[in-house]
Amino acid sequence: MIRIADINKSFGEKHVLKGITATFEAGKTNLIIGQSGSGKTVLTKCIVGLHSVDSGQIHYGDKDFIVMDFKEKKQLRQEIGMLFQGGALFDSLTVEENVLFPLSMFSDQSMSEKRDRANFCLNRVKLDNANKLFPAEISGGMKKRVAIARAMAMNPKYLFCDEPNSGLDPQTSIVIDNLIKEITDEYNMTTVVITHDMNSVMEIGDNIIFIYKGEKWWEGSNEDILKTENKEINDFVYASKYMRRLKAAK
């Protein structure tokens, strides 16, 4: 479980996060949704400590993240898997080496066990014949999937995914959503997923947080989101004609 309370973050004059409080339960897929530029990526980067917060509290379980020193943070981070919006693959390493990387850094398994684990993860993101290719040689969606495989390689306790299915076709997108849901259930992970995809919201959204201009505007489940009368969230959810027609038909 991760608890954040009253998180504030500014870049210079720009107040990006305004007092965000939330709880992300273990074993649930927690979604963060919101317009482009609303502060979703900044929020997750604050939670994992890639940005320092101006004020507020962050707790992993009962451990206070803000007061941790360099070493304690390093320790905790070995339990964190993160998918970056841009993939962030190491471009001097092949696909397989990318997934192997955290394993060779932190696990004491034999090389063949590590290989098996890497291939297992690649297989789960449906990438079977790309092991020897370099990031520059694969498509955007494939990069994303390699990055997901790398994020899950160490069986993290906390998983953050920044737009896991942007750039994927609808079918693969569903595969990835299901994968995230499955591993969350299976290992009782605390999972935080940023998404724009209403499909994912409806499929896997156990707990949804809607960020609007840096504030937490709304929170609820995928059941609730269709019923809410909140204007901003309706504008977001029913942005497309298709969704509006669907709503009218209901």
């Binding site: 980067k45 994992v48 890639l50 981070r77 070995q78 964190i80 970056f84 693959l89 932190f106």
Partner: peptide
């Protein structure tokens, strides 16, 4: 990529 390294610990 540096952030990715940091996140892995």
């Amino acid at each position: 990529q540096i952030d990715a390294l940091e996140i892995m610990g």
